[in-house]
């Protein structure tokens, strides 16, 4: 009786714009918060550093310096949206990078080496996905195996760093497409392209919607007849592929493959995704948010190096920020559960 009455009432009075907006887009709030923090960081840095922070050069460099992390964060977003986690991305990136550098150094043409890097990443992702989906292994443990495997294989390829001489790869980094003082490199374009493709897949394909549905309730998704197995394996393959791509970007950026690259980078990627408003239990979040998260991360890093502070502050601040976001998310989730 009561429900019916309230429902009619609700329609009679007509929900306000704000109510409608909140009932439709409440899940976006954490992402808006991330945008807020990014703006706050920009403004704060601009004031404290007396106006030479927000410059075209700095902003352009932000994308350039963090392109690899952006690519990783995109892959991580897929995984976290299903409620999983992928610890392997840093190692996969290192493996892919050193594999590419080695192949190129051995005279393999780039048209072969680059696909090999991507496939290498995707293969590790596939292994993780199969373990998670078909052997009921927790994502944490399965991707832990991926982490060990990627790191070990990186050292198997080479114990030391390998310089890249291949011009087409270096071109990705050295080319600067300029617009006034602004510039973007092909690696930056790759990263932005990855974001765009991911946004398309997540919001405009059934695969993408299945990813969200699994994060909401895997059992429901299965009972609704969605292709859960395919999507669950798929997100890890995508994350592995992104790991491979990040290896390509990082190798181009640093001009070398190095098996020690990306130790702990998986944590940075997870932190960026969470700061960008994706909820770790899955089902809520946006890949655009992850991009914002990466920029927040990169901006903090830039500010710290501007201020000449020790890099150890970086870890502490990112940790604190992560904590802040987690507590906020926790409050949001608790509230939305309370409403039901």
């Amino acid at each position: 009786m009561t429900a019916m009455a309230t429902r009619i009432q609700e329609r009679a009075s007509g929900p306000s714009f704000l109510q409608t907006f909140l009932s439709r887009h409440g899940g976006m709030m954490p992402t808006f918060a991330a945008v807020g923090i990014l703006l706050l960081l920009f403004v704060g840095a601009e004031i404290f550093l007396r106006g030479d922070f927000i410059t075209p050069r700095n902003i352009s460099a932000l994308l350039l310096d963090n392109a690899y992390l952006l690519v990783l964060a995109v892959g991580m977003t897929f995984v976290i949206l299903t409620g999983g986690i992928d610890l392997s991305v840093g190692s996969v990136m290192a493996f892919s990078g050193i594999l590419g550098a080695k192949l190129l150094a051995d005279g393999v043409p780039a048209v072969v080496a680059v696909p090999a890097m991507l496939l290498g990443g995707a293969a590790i992702g596939l292994m993780i996905g199969i373990l998670v989906q078909y052997f009921d292994v927790q994502p944490f443990i399965a991707s832990l195996a991926g982490l060990f495997l990627g790191r070990g294989l990186a050292y198997v390829v080479s114990l030391s760093s390998i310089k890249v001489e291949e011009s087409s790869l270096l071109w990705l980094q050295s080319t600067r497409i300029r617009l006034g003082d602004w510039y973007i490199t092909p690696t930056g374009l790759i990263a932005l392209g990855t974001v765009a493709i991911a946004a398309f897949v997540l919001h405009l394909t059934r695969f993408g919607r299945t990813v969200y549905a699994i994060g909401g309730s895997e059992q429901s998704a299965r009972l609704m007849g969605l292709k859960v197995a395919r999507a669950k394996v798929g997100v890890y393959v995508i994350s592995g592929l992104c790991g491979g791509l990040a290896g390509l970007v990082l190798t181009a950026y640093s001009g070398a493959g190095y098996p020690r690259n990306g130790i702990g980078t998986e944590l940075d990627a997870i932190a960026a995704v969470v700061i960008g408003g994706t909820i770790l239990t899955g089902g809520r979040g946006y890949v655009i948010g992850s991009m914002i998260g990466v920029f927040v991360y990169g901006t903090i890093k830039t500010i710290i190096s501007f201020m000449g502070a020790e890099q150890s502050w970086m870890q502490i601040i990112v940790g604190a920020l992560l904590l802040l976001f987690i507590v906020v998310q926790r409050a949001i989730v608790a509230r939305s559960e309370g409403r039901r």
């Binding site: 439709r24 899940g27 059934r206 919607r209 299945t210 969200y212 549905a213 994060g215 909401g216 309730s217 059992q219 429901s220 998704a221 009972l223 609704m224 007849g225 969605l226 089902g283 809520r284 039901r340």
Partner: peptide, 15 residues
Amino acid sequence: NLCANLTVGENVMLG
């Protein structure tokens, strides 16, 4: 058995 994180319309049409 629906997904609470999605909209009503999407739950109706999912897949």
